[in-house]
């Protein structure tokens, strides 16, 4: 699991995609930070973080598209699947690698809390809430991306489908508030991994939301393992 995580992480940052990813992430997020917090003078990080949600729709597929697809394309999955490791460990290794990419990216933003505390008086729950929520949300989306990547040998197809999935999840929350029908609206809201985000930043650490995020991640990791196992029976 650790071996796979290390290899994937390394492979991500030795390819151009790694740099494109970091560059886009840091440029866009700092652009928002400067806009809202530096020039705008806001002390809350919520504006930046909620603006970043849309970037995730683009960035998650960039990180997850190759995870399984490339292994299948290059036939290196034969090495992983005939090694004395469990399929779930392979899946977890890949998941952790993708999560580490975002941890690194988010670590680069830790200067923000410093800046806002130096020049303002932000609420602690605002900072902590945003980071925790962002992390949980990313965990969720990465598991969906990883799952999609296990379905196809082509990383381009994986990227496109992941993008569509992210976009759909993103839009569910907006659609949900626009729909009149209570049931449809409730379903969409439930599906919307993004809408739960806002409660965290309000400082409400709702157990239900945490459980929701974690369980969606677990479900998709489990499904990914199932898809890989299933291939053996093809």
């Amino acid at each position: 699991m650790i071996a796979i995580m290390k290899r994937d992480l390394r492979s991500f940052f030795t390819s151009p995609i790694g740099y494109v990813f970091l560059a886009v992430f840091l440029l866009v997020s700092n652009y928002f930070f400067f806009g809202y917090n530096v020039s705008g003078g806001a002390s809350s990080l919520s504006y930046v973080f909620s603006s970043m949600l849309l970037i995730l729709v683009f960035l998650i597929p960039l990180v997850t598209m190759r995870l399984m697809s490339e292994e299948m394309k290059q036939r290196t999955d034969q090495m992983l699947l005939t090694a004395p490791v469990r399929v779930i460990d392979i899946v977890l290794g890949k998941y952790l690698a993708a999560m580490m990419v975002f941890v690194i990216a988010l670590a680069c933003t830790l200067i923000w809390p410093l800046i806002v505390t130096m020049f303002g008086d932000p609420a602690v729950f605002d900072i902590v809430g945003n980071y925790v929520a962002m992390f949980l949300l990313i965990g969720c989306l990465v598991s969906v991306g990883l799952f999609i990547s296990s379905l196809t040998e082509s990383q381009i197809i994986a990227a496109i489908f992941s993008f569509v999935a992210m976009l759909a999840l993103f839009m569910f929350s907006s659609i949900a508030s626009a729909v009149d029908n209570v049931v449809v609206s409730a379903v969409l809201n439930w599906l919307s991994v993004f809408s739960r985000y806002s409660s965290f930043t309000a400082g409400v650490f709702s157990l239900a939301d945490i459980v929701y995020y974690l369980s969606v991640s677990v479900v998709f990791l489990f499904l990914t393992a199932r898809v890989i196992e299933k291939k053996r029976w093809a």
Binding site: R7, S11, T14, S15, Q74, R75, T76, D77, Q78, M79, T82
Partner: peptide, 9 residues
């Protein structure tokens, strides 16, 4: 395997 599972990078 028939095609050695190498990570080319």
């Amino acid at each position: 395997p028939e095609q050695p599972p190498l990570y080319l990078d």
